[in-house]
Structures are given as structure tokens and as C-alpha cells.
Computed example of a mutant assay.
Amino acid sequence: MYEIVLQNLLSPYVLFFLLGIMAALFKSDLKFPNGLSEALSIYLLMAIGIKGGIELSHYALGTVMKPILGTLFLGVFIPVLSLIVLRFMKMDLKNAIGLAATYGSVSIVTYGATISFLGKNGVDYEGFMNVLIVLLESPAIFVSLFLLRLLQKAPDNQRIATHRLGFAAGIYSSMNGLFDKEVIKESLFGKSVLLLLGSLLIGWFVGQDAVSTVKPLFIDLYGSILILFLLNMGLIVGQRLPEVKKHGWKILLFGICMPIVGGTLGVFVGKMVGLSLGGATLMGVLAGSSSYIAAPAALKSSVPEANPSIYLGLSLGVTFPFNLIIGIPLYFAIAQLLQ
């Protein structure tokens, strides 16, 4: 385990990420233009999506059904578990919902770094794993927002209706609030989901014929561009770290323990649905990572009262570096033990 962590720590991906954090902490004038940062994000989303689509074209639907069901289970269970833990920690409902949605969703860059980690160690994985990223992006957001509508105090007229008609009326009222067009738009048609799903469908439709076209940009250059993106992420994390400190040690502990719990559960689910060593590791990363693109975008419009410095600061400032340095080799070691 120590050797795996050390090997991961000394990889160029992690070292450039740490360089970015150092630059931010020491107030360096190093910064990425906004346009370049956005372009790198779009590139990674498209690269992972289109590679997943090409690989998916090689599989029958029956082969991927169990992993899909396992992923949907994680997308529902993890935000519910996160909310229970956070409410036990006495966090207010709106911020607890923000963290539940963030930690139930997935970090596309952590997933990409894991692919590079597996490749460096010569470990294969199922090509359809990229499909599961898309499936895990939205369910946690919908589940968290549904729980918010269900738990927050309703207006008097809704409470009277709920009292008269029973629990079903409360559920109906919650569902009514959940399927707001803005919630649906941000959850399903936000940048990350749209690019991932669209690229995946294009890769799946074109299949192996697309390889010669996409290989020079989206496959050969993937590792190098990921390094640039992680350097920029290091700068952002270094700027967010002071915000996380303001919220006390309990929230810091959550940002480390929740990925371990979710990642371990993800590895177990991966093995139960028949995934290989690499596939189970990736399932662990999907379950143990936290979103800083799709979920925050949805929360911004759906739960404006939630504090971004908590859910975004914790995701970027604590969980992302923890997973990048320790989490990935940890989930890999757990998957090895289950082999």
C-alpha cells in the first residue's frame, strides 16, 4: 500500500497539482486565462465521453446492465447517507443538501487521473466504465433536491393538505417542486452532463471507425492535457483552502471520511456486479469522489441559500487532493484484496 501511494504521489499528475497549490499558497502571479481553463475542462469531458462511447460499441446491453444498476444504487444511497451524517453533525439543512448532492455526484478529473494511474500500472478496465460517469452525475442531484423538498417546512396550505391526505400528499408536493424546469435543465443539460453524454453517444454511434479521427487529439494527448488541467486545479484548490478552515474540524473530517466510506462501498459494489480489478477501482473512485462542476451548477440555482465555500471549498480543497494522493491507491488496494 505504501509503495502504491508513493508511486502515485511521485507521478507528474500529482506533482503538477501540488505545484499549483504551492503557487497559490505563496501568492505567485501564476494563473490560467479563463478561456484556457474552460477549454481544458471541455477537452477532458469530450475525451472521456468519446472514448467511452467507442468502447461501449463493443459491448451488448446485457453485459453492462448489472454495472448500471450498481451505479444507480450508489447515486441514490450516497447522498442519503451523506445527509444523515451531516444532519447528525448539526449542519443546517440547506448546506447539508449542498454537500449531499456534491458528494453523491462524481469528479471527472479524479476519474481521469485514475485511468492514468491504472494505465501506468498496466491494469485493464472495462471500456463501458466511462458510461457510468454520466449515470452518476445526475441521480445524486435529483435525490438531494427531492430530500430538500421533503424535509423543509412547507407553507401552511401544503401542511394542511399533507395532514389531511397523509404522507403521499407530502411526496406529491415534493415531487412537484423537484421537477422544476431549472432543476432539470441544470441537472441534465449542464455543461458536464451534456458534453459527456453527447460525446459518448457520438462515439457509440460511430464506433471503431472514429478511432483514426479522434486518436491524435483525444487519446494521444490526453495525459499531457490532464497535467495542464491539474496544475490549474492546484491553483484553485490553494485559493479555496482558507475558506474550508473557517468551518471547523468536523467538516474537514467529513471531507476525508466520506470519500473513504463511499469509495470502499463503490469497490464492493463493483466486485458484486462482476467488474475486473481496474473496473472495481474506477467504481470506487466514482463513489468516493465529489463533484465541483455539475452539482455546484445545479445548486447555484436550486439551493441558492447553500454556501458555495462549504460544498465547493470542501470538494476542491479537501476531498479532491485526498483522492488524488491517497484515495486512488487506497481504492486500488481494496480492490486487490477482494480479487
Rank of each mutant, 00 (worst) to 15 (best):
E3S: 14
L10C: 10
P12M: 09
F16M: 11
L18E: 04
G20A: 02
A23C: 02
S28A: 06
F32T: 00
F32G: 01
N34G: 13
E38R: 14
A39E: 00
S41F: 06
L44F: 15
A47N: 08
G53W: 01
G53F: 04
I54G: 01
M65Y: 07
L74C: 09
V76G: 09
I78H: 07
V80E: 02
L83H: 09
L86K: 00
L86Q: 00
R87Y: 03
M89K: 13
M89P: 08
M89H: 04
K94E: 14
A96Y: 08
I97H: 02
G98L: 09
G98F: 08
G98E: 09
Y103W: 02
T110R: 07
T110P: 04
A113D: 06
T114A: 14
I115M: 15
G119H: 05
G122K: 03
G127H: 09
F128L: 00
N130D: 10
L136A: 12
S144V: 10
L148W: 04
R149G: 14
L150V: 04
K153V: 05
A161Y: 14
H163A: 15
K181H: 15
V183S: 14
E186S: 10
S187N: 02
S187W: 04
L188M: 14
V193Y: 10
V193R: 04
L197I: 05
I202W: 00
D209V: 03
S212D: 11
T213S: 12
T213N: 05
K215E: 12
P216W: 01
L217W: 03
L221R: 13
L228E: 01
M233C: 04
G234M: 03
L235T: 05
E243M: 11
K245D: 10
K250N: 13
I251A: 11
L252D: 11
M258K: 13
P259C: 12
G262V: 15
T264W: 07
L265P: 05
V269F: 04
V269I: 14
G270A: 07
K271Q: 11
K271F: 08
M272C: 03
V273F: 06
L275R: 10
G279T: 00
Y292N: 02
A294M: 12
A295G: 11
A306V: 14
P308C: 06
T319G: 02
P321I: 00
P321V: 03
L330A: 05
I334W: 03
